[in-house]
Simulated scan of single mutants.
Amino acid sequence: FKIEGRYKDLSYVKNTTAFYRREIDRFIETHPEFEQESDGRVTLNFEPSLESAFNRGATDYFTNGRSDRMSAADTPKNSGSVIGSVKSVSRNSFTVKTKEELHNGDGLTFFSDTGELSGFLINRAEFIDEGLWEVFTREPCVSIPGLKPGLKLMRNKDAQWVKKMNAETALRKIPIRIEAKMDDRGLTLCAEDGQHHRAEIRSDADLADAKNEERAKEQLLSSLKKLGNSDFTASDVSLQCEAVKFLPASAMNQLRRDLIEKLEKERLAKRPILQKASENSVQYPIQELDYHANVMNSKAREFYEKHGAHVNQEAFEKGLGDTEAEVMRCRYCIRHEMNICPKQAKARGEKVKPTPLVLKIGKIKMTAYFDCKRCEMSLRAHVSE
C-alpha cells in the first residue's frame, strides 16, 4: 500500500491511513488465514472517506481491462465531489439543490463554460427545506462568473469534516483478557494479550466476606476494566470464586496497576530487537549501470562501486548529452485517451498513422512513440545542453 504524503496536510494523512486501516481490518475479519502483524485495535472517531481528501478522481487503470478515461485532464486541482446544482441566483445569495449538509466555510467549485475550474468559499449557509439551501458569499453572487441556474456544483472542502480531522481522530489500544481468582487465602490476577504475553500477581491479604456479593462482584469487575491511559483495553474480564469477598477499592486499584506494569515489562522483555545490518561484500547483480540506476550524487556512486558495479552513466536529470533516453514504457496510451488511436480511427472508417507526439518543458523534450501491435507507448526524453 502506498500513501502519498508529499505536500499533503495532516487531515489527508489521517484520513487515508484510517481508510486503509479499516479496510485491512475488515479483510482480516473475513479471512482467518491472515492475521495482522501489529498489536492492538484502532478505534476511529470519524468515518474515513477518500472522496473527502485531496484527489483528482480515480481509475482502476487496467485491472478490468482498458477503459476510455484513465486520466484526469480537466484540471490538475482538486475539483471535489458533486453535491448538487444551482437552483436560482440573486444579488447576495443563491439556492442549491443538494442532499448534503452545507456549512459555513465550505469550498464549492464548478466548471465554467470554457472548461476552467472556478470556485469560492461559503460565507454563510442556511437550511431552507429538505434538499434546499441558501448560500451567501463574501462577494455579490451576480459578480461570480459562470454562476447560473442549473450549474453543477462540487465541494472540495468540507469545513465540518476539516474541523473534526483537527481533533483526535483515532486511538489504538491492545485488547487483553483479565481473570481474577478469589479464595479464602487471597486474590490472584492474570492478564493475557493474545500474543503469548502473560502476567500474574498474587495478593495474600485477608479478604472479608462481602455483605452484598452481587454488588461486590460488579465493583471488582468494573475496577479491573479501568485501564486508563495505558496501552491496553479490557476485552474480557472474568471472576472465578466460590464466594465473593470484599476488597477495598484502593487495594484493588493498586493490584490492577501492578498487573498492568508487569504485563508491560513482559512484553518489553520479549520484544524482538532488530540487529544492525553488518557490512558485507554482496555483489550488485548488474555490473554496468546506465541512467536507469538514477545515480545523482557521489554517495550513490560510492554505494554501487562498493558492491562491484561500475557507473558509466549518471541520472537522466543530470543530462545525457545527445542521447534520447526511454523514461517510461506502459500500456497507457495518450493517443487512445485523445481518441486518435489508429484502432479507434479504423472503427470509425478513418485512417490514422501512429506518428510520435512531442512535449517540450524548458530544456526537456519528451517524445511519445507508439507500438500499436503490442498496444504500448514509450516515452523518451532528451535534455538539451
Rank of each mutant, 00 (worst) to 15 (best):
F1A: 13
I3Y: 02
R6T: 04
K8N: 09
K8L: 12
D9P: 01
V13T: 10
K14Q: 13
N15I: 03
R21K: 04
R21M: 07
R22N: 06
R22L: 11
F27Y: 14
E33C: 03
S38A: 13
L44T: 08
S49L: 09
L50W: 04
A53E: 13
R66T: 11
R66F: 05
D68F: 05
A72P: 00
K77I: 02
K77R: 15
S79A: 15
V82I: 10
V82L: 09
S85F: 09
N92F: 09
S93Q: 08
S93M: 01
T95M: 03
K97D: 11
E100C: 01
L102H: 01
L102K: 03
N104S: 12
N104M: 02
F110T: 04
T114N: 12
G115P: 02
S118D: 12
R124A: 08
F127L: 09
F127T: 06
I128A: 05
E130Q: 12
G131H: 06
L132F: 01
T137C: 12
R138T: 09
P140H: 05
K148G: 00
K148V: 06
G150R: 06
D158V: 00
M165T: 07
N166R: 14
A170T: 11
A170F: 11
R172M: 10
E179H: 09
K181H: 11
D183S: 11
R185Y: 08
T188W: 01
E192T: 12
E192F: 02
E192Q: 11
G194L: 06
A199H: 01
I201Q: 03
A208G: 04
A210K: 05
E214D: 13
K217E: 15
K217T: 10
L220R: 04
L221I: 10
S222R: 12
S223W: 01
L224M: 14
N229R: 14
D231S: 14
F232L: 07
A234K: 02
V237C: 11
V237S: 07
V237E: 05
L239N: 06
A243L: 07
K245Y: 09
L247S: 05
L247D: 00
P248W: 04
P248T: 04
A251C: 00
R257N: 13
I260G: 03
L263C: 06
K265E: 14
K270G: 05
K270V: 00
P272M: 05
Q275K: 15
N280Y: 01
N280L: 02
Y291L: 06
H292V: 03
M296W: 06
N297Q: 04
S298Y: 09
K299G: 03
F303R: 10
E305F: 03
K306L: 09
K306M: 07
G308M: 06
Q313V: 01
F316A: 08
F316Y: 14
F316Q: 07
K318R: 15
A325S: 11
C330N: 08
E337C: 05
M338K: 15
I340K: 00
C341Q: 06
C341Y: 09
P342A: 06
A347K: 15
R348M: 06
K353W: 03
P354C: 07
P354I: 05
P356K: 05
P356T: 03
V358M: 13
G362R: 08
K363E: 11
T367R: 12
T367I: 13
F370K: 06
K373A: 14
E376L: 15
M377V: 02
L379N: 04
S384T: 12
E385Y: 05
